[in-house]
Design a protein around this nucleic acid. Structure first.
Lengths: 189, 189
DNA sequence: GCCTTTCTATACCGATTGGTATATCTTGTT
DNA sequence: AACAAGATATACCAATCGGTATAGAAAGGC
């Protein structure tokens, strides 16, 4: 059944998020999902197929959502607030995926995890970059700095998601607005 | 010999940085170091002992260096530039350790890696926080925001280290100064 | 000389790893 | 009712995992 497939993926995601891809055995996922190994391998091919499915079914939609909501339409603050909200809302609605994504955002380059998540992660970076490239047309002195701006913005976003998932933070709208205000106008404003 | 111990740790660090702690077997580290398992276990007790040694002999000095160089002495820009330089210089002088540290900065909380690096990582965060707590005495409207400021600063620093290690960035002094300027005064200045 | 301590290698351990050959069961189609 | 196709289980595989019991070198103190 398709319900089985969903249950397997759910348990796998939870385990990967809690202890990391390599530390979780296939057998454990099967036990948690109440099935046996051949069933898992029927649906996903191999262990890496679980990550691929997560990339396709979770990461890609997340990137799409970020791309659409943060697209520059002439108001940089609006794009950055929307983008940051996308990150934080995803952390609330699907904390397991958010934790996995954050933990893999700086993963070792030769690891299987990094390879599986690489494509959507790079797309995410490109979309963040586009915001600043587009905004530089209206704000000349931003020109040519889109790479460090994108890296800084995403690094900051991941740091806040990490705080959120740790329970050290419960960001409301006002918080997000202030965070972006800091990013745009500095510490003292 | 003490030289053996150092060689083991060096190979372990390189492998962990490239592919992740769980993906690297003890046997592989031994082969790389040109020794056998009992020798490794004599020096480090168990596999986790390798991470503990890295935490003690690499992470702790890094945190100490950051704490001393970034200590607030009345000039926030100077502290932040010094702190950022500590990160980037460490990425240049010891890229393997830097890659491992960055890859573990958002590691799953229940993983062995996270537990081993937790203490120095939390100390690093506390020292970053202290900068902003101290600076808030001179700049009143920063007060009470030290947690998000520290998270954002460290997230940004890790993002730049990650770019540096990927070869997408070769930050000079001017770059660091501008990054901190952005952090303090915003995008447009 | 001898003895103790530190270090290293041979050879092995049980447990778990990812993965599969084969058979059975379920389900919709004709 | 017969059949085909997808889904699940039993039982197994070789390989690798982290770790160790035992014994032989090496080295310093006496």
């Amino acid at each position: 059944m398709d319900d089985t497939r969903h249950r397997i993926l759910d348990k796998a995601l939870r385990a990967f998020a809690a202890r990391g891809y390599d530390a979780v055995g296939v057998q454990e996922i099967c036990s948690e999902a109440g099935i046996t190994k051949p069933s898992l391998y029927h649906h996903f091919g191999n262990k890496l197929g679980l990550l691929d499915a997560i990339a396709c079914e979770k990461y890609v939609p997340f990137v799409d959502s970020f791309a659409e909501r943060s697209r520059y339409r002439g108001d940089l603050a609006f794009s950055l607030v929307s983008g940051m909200e996308t990150f934080l809302e995803a952390g609330r609605t699907d904390p397991d995926f958010a934790r996995l994504r954050v933990s893999l955002s700086f993963a070792p380059r030769q690891s299987e995890q990094h390879r599986a998540m690489r494509a959507p992660a790079e797309r995410l970076f490109e979309h963040a970059r586009r915001i600043f490239v587009a905004a530089a047309r209206d704000h000349g002195n931003m020109r040519g700095r889109d790479l460090p701006y994108a890296a800084s913005f995403l690094g900051t976003a991941d740091a806040y998601v990490n705080l959120l998932l740790s329970g050290d933070l419960d960001p409301d709208e006002e918080f997000v607005r202030r965070v972006v205000h800091h990013f745009m106008h500095g510490l003292f404003s």
